[in-house]
């Protein structure tokens, strides 16, 4: 219980809440690196994921990329980039973006691929143009998996941003590595707790976003809101893309 008291007193110390090393500044730093990296990841991955999902061309690339990048140690990517580009914002953000791309790409790709082919066929059949098929039908139906990819990517980036402090950088990870250097375990633990809290908070916010932007029609089949008459052979076979692995496994998620 000693560590608990030490943690409480660490958090109670006003010195830890102000100045350039204080929690608010570290939070902003952490959010800044993560947000920037996520944004870059989205700009790169979303168009490619949607295009490959829609046309079906280049699927092998996505699956291969997602699997290959999962094996890549994030610490190695980070250190190599910093080593060759020098310590600074750009190499760190690039490293974080590289880690954000696989889950985003896989989420977008799998999301589009998993839309019931009958629904896409119907969309074309009623006279939608390819763009309308993609944006009015495929995209809204793919949102759950796309946002799932976004959640995975966000967590991955927040976790790795903490690790990035190892190469002398801001963010909550700073507390962990400063604490490690001077054998100050409470500071390390406080840093770790802050990272965990941030990860959980972001996860919660994104879950709320998901609830508000995904059509209730895609949730209704979950069971609770299903009408009692709906159980008669109503649901068509779920769409199976050629690759049977569900999104999270494709997404290269790791903590």
């Amino acid at each position: 219980m000693n560590i608990l008291n030490q943690l409480v007193s660490w958090f109670a110390d006003p010195a830890h809440w102000s100045g350039s090393g204080g929690v608010p500044i570290r939070l902003l730093e952490h959010l800044y690196y993560s947000g920037l990296a996520l944004l870059i990841g989205l700009v790169v991955a979303l168009p490619i994921g949607l295009a490959v999902g829609h046309t079906g061309k280049g699927s092998f690339l996505i699956v291969g990329l997602a699997n290959g990048l999962r094996a890549l140690p994030e610490l190695g990517v980070l250190i190599l980039l910093v080593l060759f580009m020098g310590i600074g914002l750009i190499p760190v953000v690039i490293a974080l973006s590289i880690l954000a791309i696989p889950p985003l790409l896989a989420g977008a790709y799998a999301g589009i691929r998993n839309v019931d082919p009958a629904v896409v066929d119907a969309a074309r059949g009623v006279g939608m143009r390819e763009q309308q098929v993609l944006f009015k039908v495929e995209l809204p139906n793919a949102l759950p998996l796309i946002l799932g990819g976004l959640r995975s990517a966000a967590l991955q980036v927040i976790a790795t941003a903490a690790v990035a402090s190892f190469v002398s950088f801001g963010g909550f990870g700073r507390y962990i590595f400063d604490g490690l250097r001077i054998r100050d375990y409470p500071q390390m633990a406080a840093g770790a707790l802050l990272v965990a809290a941030l990860a959980l908070a972001v996860e919660g916010v994104l879950a709320l976003v998901q609830r508000s932007v995904v059509s209730p029609g895609l949730r209704a089949s979950g069971g609770a809101r299903r009408s009692p008459t709906a159980d008669v052979a109503s649901t068509p076979e779920p769409a199976q893309p050629d690759d049977p692995s569900p999104a999270p496994e494709l997404a290269g998620v790791k903590r």
Binding site: D116, A118, D121, A123, G125, G127, V214, G217
Partner: peptide, 19 residues
Amino acid sequence: ADLRRGIGYVIQHAGLFPH
């Protein structure tokens, strides 16, 4: 697309838009 808008189309599982 214009052609299809002028022709009704009904398929096996209805293909309704779930969203």
